[in-house]
Simulated scan of single mutants.
Amino acid sequence: MTPDPFAPARLGPITLRNRTIKAATFEGRAPKGLVSDELIDFHRTMAVGGVGMTTVAYLAVAPEGRTERRQIHWRDEAMPGLRRLTDAVHAEGAAISAQIGHAGPVADGRSNRLPVLSPSRMISPLAMMPTKAATIADLQRITAAHADAARRAIEAGFDAVEVHLGHNYLASAFLSPRLNRRRDGYGGSLENRARFPREIMRAVRDAVGDRIAVLAKLNMDDGVKRGFGLAEAVQVARWLEADGSLDALEMTAGSSLLNPMYLFKGPAPLKEFAAQMREPVRTGIRIFGRTRLHSYPYTDAYLLEDAKRVRAAVSLPMILLGGVTNRAVIDKALAEGFEFVAMGRALLAEPDLVRRMQADAAVASKCIHCNRCMPTIYVGSHCKQFGTFAPARAAASR
Score class of each variant (00 low, 15 high):
residue 313 A to S: 12
residue 9 A to L: 08
residue 35 V to P: 03
residue 341 V to Q: 06
residue 159 D to V: 12
residue 224 V to Q: 09
residue 42 F to T: 01
residue 375 P to M: 12
residue 248 A to C: 03
residue 167 H to K: 04
residue 36 S to G: 06
residue 227 G to V: 13
residue 191 E to R: 15
residue 351 P to I: 02
residue 242 A to I: 06
residue 281 V to A: 11
residue 200 I to G: 09
residue 393 R to C: 06
residue 300 D to L: 05
residue 333 A to Q: 05
residue 290 R to I: 02
residue 76 D to Y: 13
residue 85 L to H: 02
residue 209 G to H: 14
residue 398 R to E: 15
residue 110 R to T: 14
residue 62 A to H: 09
residue 82 L to T: 03
residue 47 A to W: 10
residue 109 G to F: 04
residue 329 V to A: 12
residue 28 G to I: 09
residue 59 L to Q: 10
residue 90 H to C: 03
residue 375 P to S: 12
residue 340 F to V: 13
residue 108 D to L: 14
residue 330 I to C: 03
residue 334 L to H: 09
residue 268 A to Q: 11
residue 23 A to L: 12
residue 395 A to L: 04
residue 78 A to D: 02
residue 131 T to L: 01
residue 242 A to D: 08
residue 114 L to F: 07
residue 171 A to S: 07
residue 311 R to H: 09
residue 249 L to K: 06
residue 67 T to A: 11
residue 189 S to V: 07
residue 343 M to D: 15
residue 215 L to D: 09
residue 28 G to W: 08
residue 106 V to H: 14
residue 233 A to D: 11
residue 356 R to S: 04
residue 58 Y to E: 05
residue 254 G to H: 06
residue 31 P to I: 11
residue 236 V to F: 01
residue 118 S to D: 01
residue 61 V to F: 01
residue 230 L to D: 08
residue 30 A to S: 13
residue 36 S to Q: 05
residue 79 M to N: 03
residue 78 A to C: 07
residue 53 M to I: 14
residue 143 T to H: 06
residue 98 A to F: 13
residue 14 I to Y: 05
residue 26 F to A: 05
residue 315 S to Y: 02
residue 15 T to V: 14
residue 78 A to W: 14
residue 1 M to F: 15
residue 231 A to I: 15
residue 392 A to P: 02
residue 398 R to D: 15
residue 225 K to N: 01
residue 260 P to Q: 07
residue 146 H to P: 10
residue 13 P to T: 11
residue 280 P to M: 07
residue 287 I to N: 03
residue 394 A to Y: 12
residue 289 G to Q: 04
residue 303 L to F: 12
residue 298 Y to A: 04
residue 366 K to W: 12
residue 178 R to E: 15
residue 239 W to S: 10
residue 176 S to L: 11
residue 139 L to E: 13
residue 267 P to Q: 12
residue 132 K to Q: 09
residue 255 S to L: 11
residue 330 I to V: 07
residue 71 Q to R: 07
residue 390 A to T: 12
residue 175 L to T: 12
residue 198 R to N: 02
residue 253 A to Y: 08
residue 67 T to Y: 08
residue 159 D to Q: 10
residue 378 Y to R: 02
residue 237 A to W: 06
residue 380 G to L: 05
residue 193 R to E: 01
residue 94 A to I: 09
residue 148 D to G: 07
residue 145 A to F: 04
residue 317 P to D: 06
residue 73 H to M: 13
residue 372 R to V: 10
residue 126 L to E: 01
residue 284 G to P: 00
residue 325 T to D: 13
residue 47 A to D: 13
residue 173 A to H: 02
residue 154 I to Y: 02
residue 46 M to R: 00
residue 228 F to W: 00
residue 169 Y to I: 07
residue 219 N to Y: 02
residue 147 A to G: 14
residue 248 A to G: 03
residue 135 T to F: 00
residue 126 L to C: 07
residue 392 A to C: 06
residue 270 L to Q: 10
residue 183 R to A: 15
residue 392 A to K: 00
residue 375 P to Y: 04
residue 350 E to L: 00
residue 106 V to P: 12
residue 26 F to R: 00
residue 279 E to T: 09
residue 294 H to C: 06
residue 259 N to E: 08
residue 228 F to R: 05
residue 194 A to W: 00
residue 388 T to V: 02
residue 30 A to F: 15
residue 252 T to E: 14
residue 189 S to G: 07
residue 175 L to M: 14
residue 176 S to V: 11
residue 223 G to L: 13
residue 181 R to Q: 15
residue 288 F to H: 03
residue 383 C to T: 10
residue 356 R to H: 08
residue 83 R to M: 10
residue 23 A to C: 12
residue 265 K to D: 15
